[in-house]
């Protein structure tokens, strides 16, 4: 039987300016602590969240992040969904390649971020925006 993901709680946060990054990280940490996530997993999740929220500010002019506590079978986790209405990504496969970056960052952005979480999903429509969703399980 395939396990279902159940949403236990929902919260969202608007990201408009660089000053929103630190409070947003704090909010994610609160939820991660609440479900008893280990320190290493918390650090990975918050770092991944920080990378994605910066991408969203840089390329998408900000957006909204949905923060959900979810459960699947016996495991709890945090799902973060970053949605922006920016220019979108024309070639997702290229953006997911190690070492690729269109901005002046280190080029570890998306592939590096993906390595930090358990599930990573990206959808983008050029001209309409990008949605990135990540899941970090408490014991993942």
């Amino acid at each position: 039987m395939k396990l279902m993901k159940i949403v236990l709680s929902k919260d969202s946060m608007k990201i408009e300016r660089e000053q929103d990054v630190v409070p947003f990280r704090g909010r994610v940490k609160e939820y991660a602590v609440k479900i008893g996530m280990s320190l290493v997993n918390q650090t990975k999740l918050i770092t991944a969240a920080s990378e994605l929220v910066r991408n969203m500010l840089k390329y998408g002019n900000g957006g909204v992040v949905l923060i959900e506590v979810i459960s699947e079978g016996r495991d709890n986790g945090i799902r973060l969904t970053f949605s922006d209405k920016g220019p979108g990504i024309a070639d997702i496969a290229l953006a997911m390649k190690d070492g690729y970056s269109s901005g002046k960052s280190l080029g570890i952005g998306l592939p590096g971020t993906k390595r930090l979480v358990n599930e990573f999903d990206i959808k983008s429509t050029p001209g309409q925006g990008t949605t990135v969703s990540i899941i970090k399980w408490k014991n993942g």
Partner: peptide, 14 residues
């Protein structure tokens, strides 16, 4: 540097 930060940095590729 905290150990959890070091682990994360390496996985991130920094």
């Amino acid at each position: 540097m905290q150990p959890a930060v070091a682990i994360t940095l390496i996985e991130l590729g920094l």
